[in-house]
Design a protein around this nucleic acid. Structure first.
Length: 279
DNA sequence: CCGACGTCCTGCTAGC
DNA sequence: TGCTAGCAGGACGTCG
């Protein structure tokens, strides 16, 4: 669910609210998460202060003073919010980190696709996430990226969803970026020109920057770390706009299934390249 | 090796 | 109006 802009918003929201705070308690619900929270982790983090919080791809890393870190992924419906301990806990709240000072950090996840785990200072966190992730969108080097894309016979849509190709892009921003780049989602990587690759890279960065400025997209569950909704969904040009007129040309936006996901595009603005221009 | 597809889970809603 | 099949923003394992 939450893609890069949503995760970035959560991290920015949480930063001033949890950095420097000491964790005084941990409460985990009995309901089994996909990756169960181990009680042994409680003693490791109680008494520790939050040193920093950062994002890599769609992962959230909370650095503790001890050198241990909490590693979280929000999956499809995960939420990390700071609340007053008095405030009623919503259903599906699986983990609560108390700060003993009138606030607590809550992890809530209806579908339980997300996870929170402790990565001890003795363990290499890069081995856990870096190996699964390509560059941050702002760090993509066009030439290298183009080389990687050309090696793939998959669709551009599938390529953008592959976290090893580029970190942080999910279904919404893949569709929006391909529209801005004026590239058809079903175009094969191997058919992509250097000029198209560069257009795509620029489109992704532009879309993500705008989405972050709008605090991400709230379609259903997503809220930021302060509980606020995103508003980038107001600016979506294709996502969830099937049957509606394209904002550029007026043609009707199409929706089909591609790479296992609903995929939205404008048949006129994102035409299949002719055989001649494909070469 | 690569790419397509099923699966984990709950809740909402489109369509009958 | 009421019910239910299908779908939902992700990641990973398995299969061909």
């Amino acid at each position: 669910m939450p893609e890069l802009p949503e995760v970035e918003t959560v991290v920015r929201d949480l930063r001033p609210m949890i950095c420097g705070r000491r964790i005084t308690s941990v409460t985990s619900s009995r309901k089994r998460l996909r990756l169960p929270w181990r009680d042994a982790w409680n003693e490791a983090i109680i008494g520790q202060r939050v040193k920093a919080i950062r994002r890599r791809g769609k992962w959230i890393i909370v650095d503790l003073n001890s050198g241990d870190r909490l590693l979280a992924h929000l999956g499809m419906t995960g939420q990390l919010i700071v609340a007053a301990p008095m405030a009623p806990r919503q259903a599906h709240t699986h983990l609560v980190f108390g700060f003993g000072s009138g606030s607590e950090l809550r992890f809530r996840d209806v579908r339980r696709f997300g996870s929170v785990r402790l990565v001890p200072r003795t363990q290499d966190i890069d081995a856990l996430i870096e190996e699964k992730l390509g560059p941050e969108p702002w760090d993509v080097a066009t030439e290298q990226w183009h080389h990687d894309i050309r090696r793939s016979r998959r669709s551009l849509k599938a390529i953008l969803l592959d976290q090893r190709m580029i970190a942080g892009v999910g279904n919404i921003y893949a569709d929006e970026s391909l529209f801005v780049a004026q590239l058809p989602p079903n175009q094969r990587g191997e058919k992509t020109t250097l000029e198209q690759t560069e257009r795509l890279r620029i489109a992704i960065v532009r879309v993500l920057d705008q989405a972050i400025a709008a605090r991400g997209s709230t379609i259903r569950d997503y809220i930021g770390g302060s509980g606020l909704r995103g508003r980038f969904q107001m600016q979506h040009q294709v996502y969830r706009r099937a049957g509606k007129p394209c904002v550029v040309c007026g043609a009707l936006i199409q929706c089909t299934r591609m790479a296992g996901r609903s995929t939205h595009w404008c048949p006129n603005c994102q035409p299949i390249a002719s055989r001649r221009t494909n070469k």
